[in-house]
Design a protein around this nucleic acid. Structure first.
Lengths: 131, 131
DNA sequence: ATATTAATGAAAACATTTATCAATAAGGCG
DNA sequence: CGCCTTATTGATAAATGTTTTCATTAATAT
């Protein structure tokens, strides 16, 4: 049994995710942390993000489109992604815990959860309509 | 306006996706193609996958967990992903075109579609239960 | 056949994440 | 408090997945 240690780096990463709020990528968390603590390594940020996600202090959003993202909200909720710029946002929609019941055949998978990602165009990108 | 050309490489990539069926990654498509055509470049595979996806001859699945995947089925449908081994499968569940109507606030995004990815454990991985 | 230029192949560049490994420091214990 | 143990760190390299670059090739129109 491996006992975890509380390091300032871990606290910094945790605080960054909570301050940044909007689904930051590991890179964004790193940039936030190094601002005040220039000697923190990027590997440490990745390690702590993973560790915090495992202990459910933050949640890990393996969402489509490039980098993995992290969230200070640990309750399940759904997302939208802009097809043009890749930006993410939360969607205000009731979580559907009963959704897996609609599956007729899941190939023998034991379902434990689900994500919904809507596709769309964000206000910024739909402004200039042509292209 | 750029006119597209029909090349044997594009045909090979298209055929590979159709033969491989099960959500191949670009890498898997590449390996399938080079078997018989060793001089085909990996960049060409990527380029043609993207181009075929744009012209909706195949579909592009930006699903969580590593590499992007491609599918010979162009109708929308949902997926499961094994948390342990990362394997993908189709899920037999009616597509829900009306799902976006449940969104109360989409941050001004114009919704054009959605994906659902169920999380679970595949038969193989749930065999040995204790981790 | 010839000209135009989209598409190719090879390699380098790029982006994201993980592994390596010696050095550091957190927490337990006397 | 100071000493051990070893989890964690920082720096860098490596692995992975994808895109770019650019000179060359070859698809289509004429």
């Amino acid at each position: 049994m491996t006992k975890k240690r509380n390091t300032i780096q871990k606290a910094l990463v945790y605080e960054a995710v909570n301050r940044l709020k909007s689904h930051p990528t590991a890179e964004e968390v790193y940039r936030y942390v190094v601002k005040d603590h220039p000697n923190v390594s990027k590997a440490t940020v990745y390690r702590n993000l993973r560790q915090l996600a495992e202990s459910v202090e933050i949640s890990e959003l393996q969402l489509p489109g490039g980098a993995e993202r992290f969230d200070h909200i640990t309750e399940p909720h759904y997302h939208v992604r802009c097809c043009k710029c890749g930006r993410f946002a939360d969607v205000d929609m009731k979580y559907l815990p009963g959704l897996p019941e609609h599956i007729t055949d899941s190939n023998g998978f034991a379902i434990t959860g689900h994500d919904i990602v809507f596709r769309g165009t964000c206000p910024e990108c739909s402004g200039g309509q042509t292209e």
